[in-house]
Amino acid sequence: MNIFRLAGDMTHLASVLVLLLKIHTIKSCSGVSLKTQELYALVFATRYLDIFVTYVSFYNTVMKLIFLGSSFSIVWYIRRHRVVRRSYDKDQDTFRHLFLLLPCLVLALVINEKFTFKEVMWTFSIYLEAVAILPQLVLLQRTRNIDNLTGQYVFLLGAYRALYILNWIYRYFTEEHYVHWITWIAGIIQTLLYADFFYYYFQSWKNSVKLELPA
């Protein structure tokens, strides 16, 4: 494992922990898109179908369990927690799951490395992860009220994607036959979705003013 991959995984882990910590300690999920969190839970569930069958490393298994556990806990908090669920911006978080789910499923059925159930589900999770942040970005733009933790959550997620691209470039030059076209193209699209957010995030950081996205 190279340094970019490890740094990417750590920022990914940090993003999830920031969000869980925010929800758990201040008992509020305001500004957090339940739609995005449900999509991530589905991404992990479909990607790690073989978690107990295919063993890569202790590190991989533990990280997979953390991502599965944290994503489902976040969904549980927003939907079921007596206090947290009252802070959910239901009327603002109106993005339709189906608009993202259906195209990803169709694409996974058509473009995949092998037409098997496991492989199609894996490919579906890659496509879905690429666009799962959209409801969150729409919600941020709509409410325009971004608290620090939600801003950091999205920033860390974007950083994780950018680091994964560096990881692929590194692996391309250091390993033989390391070409995962599907992952790479979906990953680049996913990272590009953050470009706009990054721009405003750095602007607000540079000028030390509160992060606000233009309407």
Binding site: T54, V56, F67, H177
Partner: peptide, 10 residues
């Protein structure tokens, strides 16, 4: 045909 690389990422 080249064997696809292992899925060892998260």
């Amino acid at each position: 045909d080249v064997e696809p690389p292992p899925k060892d990422e998260l």
